[in-house]
């Protein structure tokens, strides 16, 4: 076990360094730099002004020096400074992190829990009407562009019915505190979480259904059935438990893709999360910030997958880490 962890951490180190390198050089291929973006937005610039900006940003240095400095800072867990935003990258990310975690957490929770229930129901009635309806719906959600769902939900629930706010995370002007604030955030969270959740809901529903059907064919289920165990008990105790293993795996894999989906949802709902921040950092050539976000999200993915491996051993004692 300890050997496994040590080796994993070593591998993680390599992966993380690789990510930093790829990101750094890829992003430096981009035409134009942060000074040009700022000058562009200003609608006016002089050569002196551009030079002053470049010097301030540290982008007047040779590329290899910038890279060495970046890696050096990373090793001391310093993500650098966003000159554009006038703030350390870590601080900027800390500000946006709660919103991101809230959105990702709630949409993932929604997708996994509802996905398991629907997948379970569909598998239990495989081939029947209920299965067809659930499978079709899941497929429809999967096939509809996420942003389109988002805009339509806004049209129906915010504009037409006026039940939920259009966007943002809080009603700032109301100045809520405590529980009122939590309720307010929850109201703002509903539509973005549902929009992002629906896509992944489809994935988990299909996954649970497929893996339950697979488990149904296994020997131990046949044995249980032969022994006269009730179908409901078979489904919940024997089949579902085993079918959850792929769900855990997928959870680890989906984690990195959900940040991409978050870019779209955060755009539609003005949700102040990291996905949108990364998107804007890319267009502003705010490389320190973008690198910081990509780096940290990679780190999270790596560690979650490590955790998934560990959870695996708990769910299924037959699996050993080697």
């Amino acid at each position: 076990m300890r050997r496994y962890l040590r080796r994993s951490l070593w591998q993680i180190g390599i992966v993380v360094l690789g990510i930093a390198t790829i990101n750094f050089f890829l992003l430096h291929l981009a035409p134009g730099d942060a000074a040009e973006v700022m000058a562009g937005e200003s609608g006016a610039a002089t050569a002196e002004y551009m030079a002053a900006l470049r010097q301030q940003f540290g982008i007047d240095q040779p590329l290899y020096l910038q890279f060495l400095r970046y890696v050096g800072h990373l090793l001391t867990l310093d993500l650098g400074y966003s000159f554009r935003e006038g703030m350390p990258v870590a601080e900027l990310m800390r500000q946006r992190l709660p919103a991101t975690l809230l959105l990702m957490g709630s949409s993932t929770a929604l997708a996994v829990s509802l996905g398991c229930v629907l997948g379970f129901m569909a598998a239990r009635r495989a081939g029947k009407i209920a299965d067809t309806v659930i499978s079709t719906l899941a497929l429809l959600f999967y096939a509809t562009p996420v942003f389109w769902v988002g805009v339509m939900l806004v049209m129906v629930f915010s504009v037409a019915l006026d039940w939920l706010p259009i966007g943002g995370m809080t009603s700032i002007e109301a100045g809520y505190r405590g529980w009122a604030l939590a309720g307010d955030v929850a109201r703002h969270l509903v539509l973005p979480a549902v929009t992002l959740g629906l896509f992944y809901l489809a994935i988990y529903t299909r996954l649970v259904r497929a893996s339950m059907l697979e488990v149904y064919h296994l020997d131990f289920v046949r044995t249980a059935r032969a022994k006269g165990v009730r179908p409901w008990r078979i489904a919940t105790r024997h089949v579902l438990r085993n079918a959850l293993l792929p769900v855990v795996t997928t959870l680890g894999v989906q984690l990195s893709s959900i940040l991409g989906g978050a870019v779209l949802v955060e755009t539609v709902f003005s949700w102040p999360g990291l996905g949108r921040l990364a998107f804007e950092a890319l267009f502003h050539r705010d490389l320190a910030l973008l690198l910081g976000i990509l780096f940290c999200s990679s780190l999270v993915v790596v560690f979650v997958n490590l955790a998934v491996d560990l959870i695996y051993t708990l769910l299924d004692p037959r699996i050993e880490l080697s």
């Binding site: 591998q11 992966v15 990510i19 990195s256 893709s257 996905g275 999200s297 990679s298 790596v302």
Partner: peptide, 14 residues
């Protein structure tokens, strides 16, 4: 793993 940890959509966006 390297490619799997970078959010794919964000990566294509970049």
């Amino acid at each position: 793993e390297l490619f799997q940890t970078i959010p794919p959509f964000l990566f294509s966006l970049a």
